Amino acid sequence: MGFVAKPTLLRVLDRLGALATLLLPLFLVHWRGIAEGCLDGLAVGFLVRSALTRDWSWCRQGFVWPALVWWGWLVLCALPRQIPVSAEAAASLAQALLAIRFPVAAFALAFWTLQESWTRTWCRRLVITCVLYLGGQMLLQAVTGHNLFGNPRFGDGTLTGPYDKPRVSAPFALLGLPAALFVGALLGERVRRSWQKALVTGATLLPVLGLLVLAGQRMSLATFLLGTGVCALVLPSLRRPSLALLVASPALIGLLMFVSPEAFGHLVTKTQTQLAHFASSPYGQIYNRAAVMIEAHPVMGLVV
């Protein structure tokens, strides 16, 4: 194998990293196994590049060490406690060791590939395209009863979007919030008064909220509202739009009773039933199990 000059290798790594970054949002929508491969490639490529350039300055950033401490604690909790080591314990340890690829991939995006303006621009465009695609599939299914692939609503009335199962609301909530905030900020540059900026931002967030309510998935709706609240704590300009969304949520959920009674039943009635019988629900069983683990071993979460 011939010698490859370091500058050439760095250029190849940069191009592959940019490609993986731009493919990531697309394959998070369809074929998620490829998306995980993109994440793995970003993590490995970033570490290789840091070693070649001897640039580890990103390790000094404030949010890097908490992630590494979390990973160390995860590995410590997964260490086998018995000899011989069972196959299940070995698999748990392997999963814990490999979990570092997720924060490292995030560091790669923050400190490597998205440092280039053209990569940021195209990544924004692709994320917005994915949001429009998911939202369009949800809206089409809500209006006609089927998505572009002919899949109907799920049996409980919830929307499936471009899928055959109701899992569209999770990626839509995660991608829709930053996309709506970016579009709101872009449109807000054209107005001067603060109330006009708040109105524009609220107008871009409201369709995302409406589609999540229409989807009938409570956890994705809660994730979106929680994320909006966190953003409002950091950015004071988002506090009025966030408060408006919080006020609008019950009204939209109430309207869902007439627009889609099945989705309303899944979003509201089923939630009310599960909360009323929380101890016997699957969520209650998970909670009780976690409480026992914490009581027995507060740090490691082990049960003997």
Rank of each mutant, 00 (worst) to 15 (best):
A5F: 02
L10N: 06
V12R: 10
R15A: 15
G17F: 15
L19F: 15
A20N: 12
L28M: 14
G37N: 12
L47V: 13
S50V: 05
A51M: 15
G62Q: 11
V69T: 11
G72H: 01
A78R: 04
A78N: 05
V85P: 11
S86P: 03
A87M: 01
E88Y: 14
A90Q: 03
I100M: 04
I100A: 11
R101D: 06
P103F: 02
A105Q: 02
A106G: 04
A106K: 03
L109Q: 09
Q115G: 14
E116D: 07
E116C: 09
R124M: 07
R124P: 03
L126M: 15
T129C: 14
V143M: 10
V143T: 06
N147S: 04
L148D: 06
F154W: 15
G155F: 09
G161P: 06
D164I: 13
S169R: 13
A180V: 04
L186K: 14
L187R: 13
E189A: 08
R192I: 00
R193W: 09
W195R: 10
G202V: 15
G202L: 00
A203E: 10
P207I: 09
P207F: 05
P207G: 12
V208D: 03
L214Y: 01
G216S: 10
R218I: 11
L221K: 04
L225F: 02
V230W: 15
C231N: 12
P236Y: 11
A244R: 09
L245G: 14
V247R: 13
S249Q: 15
G254T: 09
L256C: 00
F258H: 04
L267C: 11
T273A: 05
S280W: 08
I286S: 07
Y287N: 01
I294E: 03
M300C: 05
